[in-house]
Amino acid sequence: NKFNKELQWATWEILNLPNLNEEQVKAFIDSLRDDPSQSANLLAEAKKLNDAQA
């Protein structure tokens, strides 16, 4: 389904953001699992944090 694909994509993207530490990655992945419908928003937040920590 749509959420499953978005969840998989967001998870992959977050795992590959180079500037997030392990705790941050875990927190984003946990949030994705808690509410897959928020995957686009969570991915945007993760990318923003990744850029800020570059």
Rank of each mutant, 00 (worst) to 15 (best):
residue 21 N to F: 12
residue 47 K to I: 08
residue 6 E to Q: 05
residue 8 Q to V: 10
residue 22 E to I: 10
residue 46 A to T: 01
residue 7 L to R: 01
residue 9 W to I: 15
residue 27 A to F: 08
residue 35 D to M: 09
residue 51 D to P: 01
residue 16 N to K: 09
residue 13 E to V: 13
residue 50 N to R: 01
residue 40 A to H: 10
residue 46 A to N: 00
residue 33 R to E: 13
residue 46 A to V: 02
residue 28 F to A: 03
residue 24 Q to N: 02
residue 54 A to K: 08
residue 18 P to A: 11
residue 44 A to R: 07
residue 48 K to W: 06
residue 15 L to E: 14
residue 35 D to H: 08
residue 20 L to D: 00
residue 21 N to W: 07
residue 6 E to M: 13
residue 50 N to M: 01
residue 17 L to N: 01
residue 51 D to T: 08
residue 20 L to K: 00
residue 49 L to I: 10
residue 37 S to A: 12
residue 48 K to G: 07
residue 19 N to A: 09
residue 6 E to T: 04
residue 52 A to T: 13
residue 5 K to M: 02
residue 45 E to L: 10
residue 49 L to E: 04
residue 4 N to E: 15
residue 14 I to Q: 01
residue 49 L to N: 02
residue 29 I to P: 00
residue 50 N to L: 01
residue 5 K to I: 03
residue 38 Q to E: 05
residue 1 N to D: 15
residue 42 L to D: 01
residue 24 Q to K: 01
residue 46 A to S: 02
residue 2 K to Y: 10
residue 42 L to M: 08
residue 22 E to L: 11
residue 24 Q to W: 02
residue 32 L to P: 00
residue 39 S to M: 14
residue 53 Q to A: 07
residue 2 K to N: 15
residue 31 S to D: 06
residue 9 W to V: 08
residue 29 I to A: 03
residue 11 T to K: 04
residue 44 A to D: 09
residue 35 D to Y: 06
residue 21 N to R: 08
residue 49 L to V: 12
residue 24 Q to F: 02
residue 25 V to R: 14
residue 5 K to A: 05
residue 25 V to Q: 12
residue 4 N to H: 14
residue 21 N to D: 07
residue 19 N to H: 13
residue 29 I to S: 02
residue 40 A to V: 10
residue 47 K to V: 09
residue 42 L to F: 06
residue 27 A to G: 13
residue 4 N to K: 03
residue 13 E to N: 06
residue 1 N to Q: 06
residue 37 S to P: 04
residue 41 N to D: 07
residue 19 N to M: 10
residue 30 D to P: 00
residue 41 N to T: 13
residue 19 N to T: 03
residue 3 F to I: 15
residue 16 N to D: 04
residue 51 D to A: 11
residue 39 S to P: 04
residue 30 D to V: 08
residue 22 E to A: 12
residue 3 F to H: 15
residue 5 K to E: 15
residue 20 L to H: 00
residue 49 L to S: 03
residue 50 N to A: 05
residue 20 L to I: 04
residue 23 E to Y: 10
residue 50 N to K: 01
residue 41 N to M: 12
residue 25 V to K: 14
residue 15 L to P: 01
residue 20 L to S: 00
residue 1 N to V: 03
residue 23 E to P: 06
residue 7 L to H: 03
residue 14 I to G: 01
residue 5 K to T: 10
residue 16 N to H: 12
residue 50 N to D: 11
residue 53 Q to W: 07
residue 36 P to Y: 03
residue 28 F to K: 00
residue 48 K to Y: 08
residue 17 L to F: 05
residue 54 A to Q: 13
residue 42 L to W: 05
residue 32 L to S: 01
residue 47 K to F: 07
residue 17 L to E: 00
residue 42 L to K: 05
residue 34 D to G: 12
residue 13 E to H: 10
residue 43 L to R: 04
residue 25 V to L: 05
residue 27 A to Q: 12
residue 10 A to R: 03
residue 54 A to G: 11
residue 30 D to N: 10
residue 45 E to R: 09
residue 34 D to Q: 10
residue 18 P to R: 06
residue 10 A to M: 06
